[in-house]
Simulated scan of single mutants.
Amino acid sequence: MIFSNVITTARDRIAKRRRYNALVAEIESLSPRDLADFNGNRSEMLYHAYREIYG
């Protein structure tokens, strides 16, 4: 039972990290022009990505 919980927790953390890394890569790939088109702020977007994944 304990081992199963450890495995489940590890899988959840890995999935969260993968999703976060994908969001960061997507945000980092935006050009300054893309950001300007929708009045985006890269650091705010990264902050919100972190909050979305990790709470």
Rank of each mutant, 00 (worst) to 15 (best):
A22W: 04
E52D: 15
A15H: 06
D12V: 10
D34V: 02
N41L: 00
D34W: 00
R17A: 14
I14E: 14
Y54K: 11
A15R: 12
L23G: 07
R11A: 09
D34L: 01
R18T: 06
I7G: 07
A36K: 09
T8W: 01
Y47P: 03
T8H: 00
E26D: 13
I2M: 12
I27Y: 08
G55K: 13
R18Y: 05
A22S: 13
T9F: 13
I7T: 12
E28D: 14
F3L: 04
I7L: 12
F3Y: 14
N39H: 12
N39P: 02
L30I: 04
F38E: 14
E52Q: 14
Y20F: 12
I7P: 00
N5A: 11
V24F: 01
A36G: 08
R19F: 07
I14L: 07
K16D: 11
R17F: 06
I53P: 04
R51Y: 15
L35C: 00
D37F: 06
G55R: 14
N41A: 06
A15T: 04
F38V: 08
L46Q: 02
R18G: 13
Y47T: 03
M1W: 11
L46Y: 03
R33N: 08
A49E: 10
M45R: 12
R42H: 02
N5D: 10
N21R: 14
N5H: 12
L35R: 03
